[in-house]
Design a protein around this nucleic acid. Structure first.
Lengths: 204, 204, 204, 204
DNA sequence: CATGAATGAGTGTTCATTCAT
DNA sequence: AATGAATGAACACTCATTCAT
């Protein structure tokens, strides 16, 4: 019961807490200024530490992005799993989008999502990380779509589930772009478009 | 009526040609290396001129992006208008995506599209340009959707046309993200997803 | 006759002059502060230009050292060839050492020589450059030693000439070390040691 | 007489042991990576202690080099004294060089020797230390050279002994440079050059 | 109109040194 | 006595932009 209090965990806890501080600060800076414009000095200042200290925890700037991607993977998985219990998918999708758009600075959000996607076209490590992340999320989505209705799923055939997972993923990624390119789009319009999309797919 | 009678136009013609050369070169470089990694020196070399000369036609690197955005607007409008004559929307959508993904260097493509979207979150001028572009495209789409079937349209009500234009736009933007994050996705899978999406929206 | 005035040579002349300025400044800085302690900013300031401009002419700091090494090679060769006409080798050797020790900042001197040797143990490119330089100088020395007395040489057998070239080279390199480790050694003592060394080798 | 009776000495003994560990580790690191490339962190790790602890025994990185120089002085003296008993100086000189070139990590060797010499041109404390070291070694050499043949010496006059000590010292320093600049020189060539040098000096 | 040499502020990263524990 | 996390001032190098020619 007191296992959490063991000294080893304590030490590791300190390091992990520093990593958290750095990742949160980096996310905030990347969102506000973009990946290239956010210098290590700014990230360090935001994290309340010196630039040099960051390199004790991450070997490079790219490694920080990579860590953000990997951290996000688990969060996305949790979000998708929560769909199993959602009474109305249309509502759930809209709420997910809202969270995604206006996430607190310690969550990946739409802006950072695009920033990372753009960076992937240059940095192979980031590209690989994103690819893995996307695949896992798609598998999770397909699992939900092919689960029986009784189990909170949609009861689709395995084949259709795979295709529709792509369709859903694509549309949600499109929403991220929308949020960035026309941030002042009225929410009702987006809600209507989401409804239009979901109704079409799951109408039968 | 004769060209010689308009010396101003002649000069303007040359200037416009230079602008074209710069914009094409810049697009090529941005697509190949990304917005930040493509230096002005590379753009100048690609355009076959000196770096200094670029600044005679564009006040800054951002201004070049802006011009690319605006130039793309007209092209997109033309693309959408061609939908009126397309026999099968599903097929047309897939072909549009292919062009978009593998565009020749003088066309905006998926990679550049995301690059610009990400940049917009920092540069207000680019943001404004993209917003205008998106709106015009959406209006064009809505016009097509609400046109009568006889006129090559879809005969939707004005209200539904507006919503569905957003839905379509969102999905296509999502396809851009897909193309960048998982470039090796089999084309058949994407084609199936596009079909899944279009079938759902226009099934009735 | 006016070939030197051709425009091509003029342009190349400008670039070469800049290279010279950089190399001279770098040599001065390396001698005064050492290779690592002499920052690019200091070299640039010494050369009367901005740091960025150096990189138009040399791709890296190491490349500057390499260029210095290569430039020195030709100078050393010329020095050795002048031995053919020297009436007294003992005198010539001592004078060569004096020049070497107190060279003007645009000549490699003892301090820079050691700096480069030490750096070679880390930078393989510099190591390769120095190796080539040493070999060429040794060959030049051997050629002089095996030339007939009538031709200003020493008339040694080819085999002995090769060995003795190493002996001479080694001793001269030792003089560089001496000049740095005990700079206030009386010149007469060094002159006596040089005489002792030369007398021994060429006594018969 | 008992160690316990001298608590001060005990403490000093521990401190001295720590100093030894640091010096050996530093020498190893300097030889393997060079003076500037060997960081305090690496030295600390090699010595099996924390970086901070080193500063309890040495005020700076330069102080470590200085201590290495001083420690080497005694070792060199011992080496020279062993010449008294050497049957063949030529052989002894070659063996000394081999040891010098491939010394175990707790001995100063050729690479470190040059590293220190180069550093001396900047750091006055190191320069002073090296100067003292060189003088003592030269005196030791001169003493051997002027000792009677019966005593294992060379029986030179005091004056010639002083000069020849410089000659010998210079040549050996030159061998260090050779070892670094052309490490793949065949040993036989160096042996021949050493023989050439020694034969010349001691031929009569 | 056109050049390309020149600028200089800015980048990610390193490392000798310090100090709270 | 000992730790190792933390500092911060460097460093080599880049690149959008300017300007003398």
């Amino acid at each position: 019961m007191t296992a959490q209090a063991q000294p080893g965990a304590k030490v590791s806890g300190r390091a992990q807490a520093q990593c958290e501080r750095i990742l949160c600060a980096a996310q905030k800076c990347f969102i506000e200024h973009g990946f290239h414009a956010a210098g290590m000095a700014l990230i360090a200042e935001t994290a309340g530490m010196s630039p040099g200290l960051i390199y004790r925890y991450f070997p490079s700037k790219s490694a920080i992005i990579l860590a953000i991607v990997e951290r996000q993977l688990e969060r996305s998985r949790a979000n998708i799993r929560s769909l199993h219990d959602a009474p109305d998918f249309k509502e759930a999708a809209f709420n997910a989008f809202l969270l995604w758009r206006d996430a607190d600075p310690c969550q990946v959000n739409a802006a950072l999502f695009l920033e990372m996607s753009a960076e992937a076209s240059r940095d192979p490590m980031i590209a690989a990380g994103l690819r893995t992340c996307d695949q896992e999320i798609r598998h999770e989505l397909a699992a939900w779509l092919s689960a029986s209705v009784a189990a909170g799923g949609k009861g689709l055939s395995a084949e259709l589930a795979r295709v529709r997972a792509i369709t859903l993923q694509t549309f949600f990624e499109g929403l991220s772009v929308r949020a960035l390119r026309e941030p002042d789009t009225p929410l009702e319009e987006l809600k209507a478009a989401i409804a239009d999309f979901v109704d079409g797919l799951f109408s039968t």
